[in-house]
Structures are given as C-alpha cells and as structure tokens.
C-alpha cells in the first residue's frame, strides 16, 4: 500500500505499525517525531498503531538551529 511519507508517495507493506515502518526506513526511533494526518502520535503508541493506506505521515526530528 502507499502512504505519503514526508510529502513523497511511498510504498510500504500492508498492516505494519509505526515502529516497523521506522525500522524499515532505518530511522533511529529515539530521535523521531511522528505525525499521522496532522496528529502527533505519542511514542508509547508506535508499537500498536497501524498505518493505513493513504496516511499522510510526517517524520521529523530536532536538528541544530539558531
């Protein structure tokens, strides 16, 4: 199925959780901020939250800035 990941249409397996998606994308879960359809998902829920077709997923993190 496809989701919109940081603005880019991305193919991911069906029935995967946020945690699995981060792992597939090789992203360090400790630094990630995850927003789905403009709602921040608390990291405690990543293991149980399933992604749905067409979800708008934003993966963000803090970076250096002035």
């Amino acid at each position: 199925m496809t989701i919109i990941l940081n603005g880019i249409t991305t193919e991911i397996p069906c029935q995967i959780t946020i945690k699995e998606m981060l792992s597939l994308q090789e992203i360090d879960a400790k630094l990630a901020i995850v927003e789905i359809n403009e709602k921040i998902i608390n990291r405690n829920l990543w293991q149980e939250t399933l992604l749905c077709k067409g979800d708008k997923v934003e993966l963000m993190s803090l970076v250096g800035g002035g």
């Binding site: 940081n6 993966l59 993190s61 970076v63 250096g64």
Partner: peptide, 10 residues
Amino acid sequence: VTVALRRIDT
C-alpha cells in the same frame, strides 16, 4: 540552547 525542527531525510 536553541534547536530547530525539520523533516527527517530518510
């Protein structure tokens, strides 16, 4: 300290 928020470059 200040920090910024950005999309992760996957």
